[in-house]
Nucleic acid binder design. Structure first.
Length: 851
RNA sequence: GCCGGGGUGGCGGAACGGUAGACGCGGGGGACUUAAAAUCCCUUGGGCUUCGGCCCGUGCGAGUUCAAGUCUCGCCCCCGGCACCA
């Protein structure tokens, strides 16, 4: 994978000048080649010694221009940081450094999301206890993060597995519980009978366990849920104003899945033994009703049958005596199917008739009630009115089971009797719909709902796809849920003063067939006195979801040293909401939604003064290798360490950002790193050369101002690739003709490159005679104009303009000539000049356009 | 199926509706070297050329415009996410 020069035996990067040991040991006092390894070692040491990137709690409290740069903290895997992490962190770090060079007090913390099933599974695999394994991984991650030159404040860091952290994760559980937002209820889960564990939906492949291929079963287990659905409207509403990447907001919107429609009640007709649609139905006055949710109330005249989810509570009540056994058998079959394959849309429809009928409230006709697994208990009311003429799934089902299909919507050229060869789910004119015939179906949505509402059989309703958040995990590696069960007192929250409920060190932390956490085997741990009555009680043995750990970590960073509160009020007021959050879009709907919810809940409980956690969120792209997503199974992952060893962190950072637009993506190629390396080497060379002096050139000065403008705009907009290109172009112009370069021509380039190549910039800054690090400079010693309070250069728009402009003369949109004219000539003069060109005259015509 | 994001040289990618291909990789040629590496210079979309230039080119097809990679409409393909969501 790594293209070594043949026979070079690892002596250096392929096809470039080597950062040689000889030069390194000779030091940098004399003119030497660019030696990134030595420079980076020197400055990382200096930063650590000077505490350049560390903020004290006083610094945090006294900061005048706070800027909170947040990046999604990593889960410390055994493999170490991969290039995707590096890419994300570098892009975020560049932005943080850019703000710092602009005079902001930048707080850029990092931490570790070290709890969770990933870590636990890996620990099981290598047979090392997670309590030993995780610290090792964290140490390795820390080393790597330091090596790439991230501006992290190691003084304020977070490790979710630290009891000092998860004490407060548990505290948040208690606060949500207090607010009535935590409840315990039974829910279906995927169960692998071979691995003896609950599986996440993502771990079920084609109905079987991803690890052992055993068919997965469905089990019902009592679990804790956070009632995120209480916040649905707000979570949706706020999307209209929060400053996030559009696609991320869209993903959340889809996940929340708002749909407008109606809830309609169908009375059950129990008196009939045989079915005849055309006789009036007999409805008991007290007949139970079946509620359905539909987005298409306008098609109700076409509802020819109903379907209940197999788990629907009315199934037993409705089923007739003679159908009982068959229905029970079907329900058992469905229960044995895992949730994932059941929800496959391309699965063949299955179902069974209950023997019962309901009355279509629009037509008054009796329609059969079926149960089928294509109707899900978790969405809507768990029951549907089936309109096979206008719903693809219902059409498929009706066709399979010989149920009637009626057209109630017609398009142009169709009428009530035009046969349907497939479902038509679109809109049109209502037909076969009684008094509503001829109306537009869109209008029917409203009028039919209103008509049924008058009879108290329907009302308009909004339904959401979002479900409550199940936080229970029947596993070991997480924070225990702080609840105690007492026979006398019931469910008792652990008193705050007893937090944390520490995760005990148990040797046998493997999940077992019981369906409960391995902690349920640790009797000495879970046996506890009831906090209320003092009697014998039992701890909750499930742990909480990793996503709860990460739902609030950004609140913790500034207050990392406080053990008496989860987050200090004053610091939180000053630093939050987060100024800019950069992360991958893979977390668009889980982490980002959960953290919004927790923030809102804490806001409502009076702990936070804001309800949205991030002022700005920007997603970053994923880089690919040979056009494909990097993955272990594809074998195309890139381990960053080797590249950093060969080329240095500065080159690696610059290269990663040069691959393509940070928010869109790029493709990693080994050879490509050559370009940024050459650029930084030439930059280094030029700065060295400058020390011998040279005379400024007006064209170079013009380009300098244009470059400052371009780089400033691009970095601010995360368009790093074009910012780097602009600097390369400028450097090429500075060096053109091998001229002696003036100091003023290169010095401003140093802060411009600093976010990308911070070590090189520090070294160059020092070489140019400045004391103190460039990142701490207020710009007062700089030989160029800078922003207020920082060393980032400013540009003069006048100087950035060209003296003469090349006019491109187009005739009928085609380029026919180029005319060089002084800037600011009038249109008439330009026209005259253009027409004077023989080529323009040749093509005659009119309407030339200037640029 | 729905929702995002894409489709531009050999490759990664640039382009306020106004010179398509910036910048970089790779390729070709040259300089310097005993040689190679490194470095530097020139060149590099395709076709034609009387060497002045000309024609064709941004997934496909229409359209708007003096002018379209860019805007409009209709398609195709790739990547990512969601999905029996009623």
């Amino acid at each position: 994978m790594f293209a070594l020069r043949p026979g070079a035996g690892g002596a250096g990067p392929a096809g470039t000048r080597l950062p040689s040991t000889e030069l390194r040991t000779r030091g940098m006092s004399e003119r030497a080649g660019y030696d990134p390894i030595a420079i980076e070692e020197k400055w990382q040491k200096a930063w650590a010694e000077r505490g350049t990137n560390l903020l004290s709690d006083e610094d945090l409290r006294d900061a005048e221009r706070p800027f909170y740069m947040l990046m999604m903290y990593p889960y410390p895997s055994a493999e170490g940081l991969h290039v995707g992490n590096m890419y994300a962190f570098t892009g975020a770090d560049i932005f943080g450094r850019y703000r710092r060079l602009n005079g902001f007090d930048v707080f850029e913390p990092i931490g570790f999301d070290a709890f969770g099933i990933h870590s636990e599974n890996y620990a099981l695999k290598v047979d090392v206890h997670p309590m030993e394994l995780i610290p090792r991984n964290v140490a390795n991650f820390t080393r790597q993060l330091k090596r790439i030159g991230g501006m992290y404040d190691w003084n304020h860091t977070v490790d979710t597995t630290d009891p000092g952290y998860y004490k407060w994760t548990q505290w948040i559980f208690l606060k949500l519980h207090e607010a009535g937002l935590a409840e315990r209820k039974e829910a279906p889960v995927n169960w692998c009978p071979s691995c003896m564990t609950v599986l996440a939906n993502e771990q079920v492949i084609a109905g079987a366990c991803e690890r052992c291929a055993t068919p997965v079963e469905q089990r019902f287990i009592a679990q804790w849920f956070f009632r995120i659905t209480e916040y649905t409207e707000r979570l949706l509403e706020n999307l209209s104003w929060i400053d996030w990447s559009e696609s991320t907001k869209k993903a959340q919107e889809n996940w929340i899945g708002r749909s407008e429609g109606a809830e309609i009640r169908f009375p059950i007709a129990r008196s009939r033994a045989s079915h005849d649609r055309h006789e009036p139905a007999t409805v008991h006055a007290a007949a139970p009703l079946i509620s359905v949710f539909t987005t298409r109330p306008d098609t109700i005249f076409g509802a020819t049958y109903m379907v209940l989810a197999p788990e629907h509570p009315l199934v037993e009540e409705v089923t007739t005596e003679d159908r009982r056994d068959a229905v029970a058998a079907y329900r058992r079959e469905v229960a044995g199917t895992d949730l994932v394959s059941r929800k496959k849309a391309d699965k063949e429809k299955s179902g069974i008739f209950t023997g019962a009928y309901a009355v279509n409230p629009a037509t008054g006709e009796e329609i059969p009630i079926w149960i089928a697994d294509y109707v899900l208990m978790e969405y809507g009311t768990g029951a549907i009115m089936a309109v096979p003429g206008h719903d693809e799934r219902d059409f498929e089902f009706a066709t399979a089971f010989g149920l009637p299909i009626v057209r109630v919507v017609a398009r142009e050229g169709e009428d009530a009797d035009t046969p349907l060869s497939e479902a038509y789910p679109g809109h049109g004119t209502l037909v076969n719909s009684g008094a509503f015939d001829g109306a537009a179906s869109e209008e029917g949505q409203r009028s039919i709902t209103a008509w049924l509402a008058e009879k108290n059989l329907a009302e308009a309703r909004v339904n959401y796809r979002l479900h409550d958040w199940c936080i229970s995990r029947q596993r070991y590696w997480g924070p225990p849920i702080p609840i105690i069960y007492c026979d006398a007192c019931g469910t008792v929250p652990v008193p705050e003063e007893d937090l944390p409920v520490e995760l005990p060190h148990v040797d046998d932390y493997k999940p077992d067939e019981s369906g409960v956490s391995p902690l349920a085997r640790a009797a000495s741990w879970y046996r506890v006195a009831c906090p209320e009555c003092g009697g014998e009680a039992r701890r909750e043995t499930d742990v909480s979801d990793t996503f709860l750990d990460s739902a609030w970590y950004f609140l913790r960073y500034p207050s990392a040293h406080r053990d008496d509160v989860p987050f200090d009020a004053e610091l939180t007021e000053k630093w939050l909401p987060v100024s800019t959050y950069i992360g991958g879009e893979e977390h668009a709907v889980l982490h980002l939604l959960y953290s919004r919810f927790v923030t809102m809940a804490l806001h409502d409980a009076g702990y936070l003064g804001f309800e949205e956690p991030y002022r700005v969120f920007r997603k970053h792209a994923l880089i690919t290798k040979d056009g494909a997503k990097m993955s272990k199974s594809r074998g195309n992952t890139v381990v960053p360490d080797k590249y950093i060893e060969r080329w240095g962190a500065d080159t690696f950072r610059t290269y990663l950002m040069f691959l393509g637009p940070f928010q869109i993506g790029g493709d990693f190629r080994d050879e490509g790193i050559q370009g940024p390396y050459g650029f930084l080497s030439r930059l280094w060379d030029t700065i060295q050369g400058e020390l011998r002096g040279g005379h400024p050139d007006s064209e170079v000065e013009r380009r300098l101002h244009a470059t400052i403008r371009k780089v400033t705009e691009d970095v601010a907009g995360l368009r790093y690739n074009t910012a780097i290109a602009a600097m390369m172009e400028y450097l090429n112009a500075v060096r053109a003709g091998n001229r002696a370069v003036a100091r003023t021509e290169v010095e401003p380039l140093v802060p411009l490159i600093a976010p990308f190549a911070p070590h090189l910039a520090e070294e160059a800054w020092e070489l140019l005679g400045h004391e103190g690090g460039i990142f701490d400079s207020d710009g007062s010693t700089a030989g160029f104009d800078t922003v207020e309070g920082g060393v980032w250069p400013t540009f003069d728009p006048e100087k950035a303009k060209e003296d003469s402009v090349e006019f491109v003369v187009q005739v009928n949109g085609k380029v026919r000539a180029r005319v060089e004219l002084p800037r600011g000539v009038g249109e008439h003069a330009a026209l005259t000049a253009a027409l004077a060109d023989e080529n323009v005259g040749r093509w005659a015509g009119e309407g030339e356009v200037r640029k």
